[in-house]
Structures are given as C-alpha cells and as structure tokens.
Amino acid sequence: MTILYQIVNEILNLYKWAVILAAVFSMLVAFGVLDTRNRLVWTIGDFLYRVTEPALRPIRNFLPNFGGLDLSPLVLIFVIYVAQMVLARVYGAIVYGNIQGLLL
C-alpha cells in the first residue's frame, strides 16, 4: 500500500511541475523570449501542451474570462494540492487506522 501511495503522490507532483512549466513556457513564448520556430522549443511546447491541456480546458471553460490573464494553472495546482492532501489522509486512515484524521 505504501508503494502505491508514493507512486500516485509522485505522479501528482510531476504533473504539478508540468503545469508550472507549461505556464512559464507559454509566458516566455507570449513575450517573445522563446521562438517556437526552433524545433526543440516547439517540441517541448507541444509536449507540455498535450500533457496539460486536457486538465486545463475544463477549468478554462468554467472560469470567467479575465482578458489576457489565465488563472486555470493556479486552479489546477490548487486542485492537485487538495488531491494530495486527501490522498495522504486516506493513506493514513488505511495504513494507521486513523479514522479521526480522515474525518477532520
């Protein structure tokens, strides 16, 4: 059970970093620091887009339009953080029998 918890927690951590990298990457492209005509830059951007967009699109559809400001990565990072907290409480309840920690 411990290894399953660690794997899921690590996947959530990696996905959180992918969301952060995608947000920074898109800002750098928008400000003209990175040129997407470069094949390596385009490949990295395409990978980050394909990994993060399925989770960000429903959030963008739900949030109101703030003009050029995209808050969906912040919302997704918060959701991942909450998922990690819930996962830790469920893990503690299963492994240590701590039902009180699960309810609080």
Results as ranks from 00 to 15, higher is better:
E10D: 13
F25V: 11
Y15H: 10
S26E: 08
N61T: 14
V51D: 03
F47Y: 08
M85P: 00
F31G: 07
L104M: 12
V86G: 02
L76K: 08
S72A: 14
R57G: 11
P64A: 11
L14E: 04
G68W: 01
G32K: 10
E53V: 15
V19C: 04
V86E: 03
T36K: 07
T43E: 06
Y5I: 09
I20V: 15
V29R: 07
I94P: 06
W42Q: 14
L71H: 07
I3R: 00
N98F: 03
Q100C: 09
L28C: 11
I3W: 02
Y49R: 10
Q100P: 04
V82R: 04
A55C: 07
F47C: 07
T43D: 07
A23N: 10
V79G: 08
L76Q: 07
I77G: 07
T36I: 15
K16V: 15
L48S: 03
Y91E: 01
I59Q: 03
I80Y: 10
A88V: 08
D46F: 13
I3T: 12
A30V: 09
M27A: 09
A88H: 02
S26G: 02
N13P: 06
R37L: 12
L103R: 13
Y5A: 01
Y91P: 03
A93D: 01
L87E: 02
D35F: 09
I11F: 04
Y96K: 01
L48P: 00
A88T: 04
P64W: 13
G101P: 03
Y91D: 00
E53N: 10
F25H: 06
L74M: 13
V8E: 01
T43Q: 08
Q100L: 13
N65V: 13
N61V: 14
I7S: 04
L71N: 05
I80K: 09
V19N: 00
I11Y: 05
Y15Q: 11
I94Y: 00
V51L: 10
W17A: 14
V79P: 01
P73M: 11
T2M: 12
V33C: 11
Q100K: 12
Y81W: 13
I77H: 03
L4W: 08
L104Q: 13
Y96C: 04
I20Q: 05
Y81K: 14
K16R: 13
A18Q: 05
A93Y: 00
D70C: 08
P64N: 05
D35Y: 09
G45Y: 00
L76C: 08
L56T: 10
V86Y: 02
I77V: 14
N65W: 14
G92V: 04
P54C: 09
T2D: 12
R57V: 15
N38K: 03
T36S: 12
R60C: 15
S26L: 07
D46W: 12
L87H: 01
N13F: 12
L63K: 04
Y96I: 09
L12S: 02
L76M: 11
L56F: 02
V29P: 09
E10M: 15
L14S: 11
G101L: 13
F31A: 08
P58C: 06
T36E: 10
L12V: 11
A83K: 02
W42L: 14
L56D: 06
L63C: 05
R50L: 13
V33H: 11
